[in-house]
Simulated assay, not measured.
Amino acid sequence: MTHPLPFALRRLALGGLVAAALAAPLATPAAAQSPEEGWAGVQAAGKLRCGAAVFPPYVMRDPVTGDYSGFFADLCREFGEEVLNVPVEFVDTTWDNIVAGVQTGKWDLSLALNRTPTRALAIAFSDPAVPYEITLLYNKDNPKIPADAKGLADLDKEDITIAVVSGTAMDKSVSPLVKNAKVVRLPSSDEARLAVMSRRADVLADPSDTNRLFIAANKDWAVDLAPQPAISKQGIGFGLNAAFPAKDIAALNIFIEEKVATGHVEALVDKAVQEVLAEGQ
């Protein structure tokens, strides 16, 4: 699927931040049930707890109401209500803590996780719901960026600063490859993009589709580079505790498979896109 995945255009265009939303008090999770109980334990507890770190349009949170949206939040809600017949509780977290939270049973599913080998050693994964790759966004008038740049190595210079969202797959994929440039790890996607807008950073490492929409909103200066060789091409799915029963993960995978095959995931992406675009009007 190559559908564009935008983010909060209005907040980006105005240089606003969602830091206030991220700084809001965390929801208090219920007492952890044993992950070995699988979906039966979730049903006995009476709710499906979904760990949610904000990254529009995958996961969005209204800073006023606290309500969650975005297509991964919608998928989680549908799985809880349609398959398990329980309501969904979203537990606010950060990208630095989203893996640890599902490991320690603070929630049952982590939303919108890149399926990486390192993470797979620590937790279990569902099948991917959408694909993913990293591109490098920068100001076309930045004299530090070589005109013939083809990959990350061409930007790995001592006078270049690369912005990433701390704890994300972009951070974990890009940071180990950088030998000379400075990597700035920021707590939210808006802050990372604002760093490039304000020229505090020279390059933003982010998903290709969100970078594409950011360029559409900033055509006068923003461009991106699809690095060769590729930095990362993965799928994005749900994360679960490693002790979760294989048969129960299979049930989640069948749910995802059907939602993808019938075009429902694409429809949820469209819904999230329209929500973000409406914010930009």
Rank of each mutant, 00 (worst) to 15 (best):
N142C: 10
S188I: 00
D206M: 09
V184A: 15
D224V: 01
A31V: 14
R115C: 02
L213Y: 13
N211G: 05
A21M: 10
E133Y: 12
D270W: 06
E82N: 05
Q33N: 12
L12T: 12
G38I: 03
L152P: 12
I249R: 15
A195V: 11
N180C: 03
L268M: 13
W107P: 07
N97Y: 00
A181V: 06
D154Q: 05
R212I: 01
W39Y: 10
G235T: 09
G80K: 00
A230G: 10
V223C: 08
V174N: 05
V178D: 09
A44W: 02
I231F: 06
E37K: 14
Q234A: 11
A181P: 10
P35A: 08
A169H: 12
V59A: 05
L155T: 14
P229C: 04
F244P: 09
N253C: 07
Q43N: 00
A147Q: 12
A149Y: 08
L252S: 09
L204D: 14
G151R: 00
A21C: 10
Q274F: 02
V174Y: 05
V174K: 02
G105R: 07
A32P: 11
V223Y: 06
Y138V: 08
D108F: 01
R61P: 07
L109V: 09
G15L: 06
T65I: 03
V42G: 08
P146R: 03
S208P: 03
D148Y: 05
E78W: 01
V165N: 07
P25F: 00
L22G: 14
K259S: 07
A205L: 06
D141Y: 07
E191S: 13
A222D: 05
L22A: 13
A230D: 13
E36I: 07
V276H: 07
L194I: 15
C76D: 03
K47E: 14
K47G: 03
R185Q: 14
M197A: 15
T116M: 06
P6A: 01
I160C: 08
A147P: 06
L152C: 04
A73R: 04
E133S: 11
W221S: 09
P6R: 00
K271Y: 03
K144P: 11
I249L: 13
K233H: 12
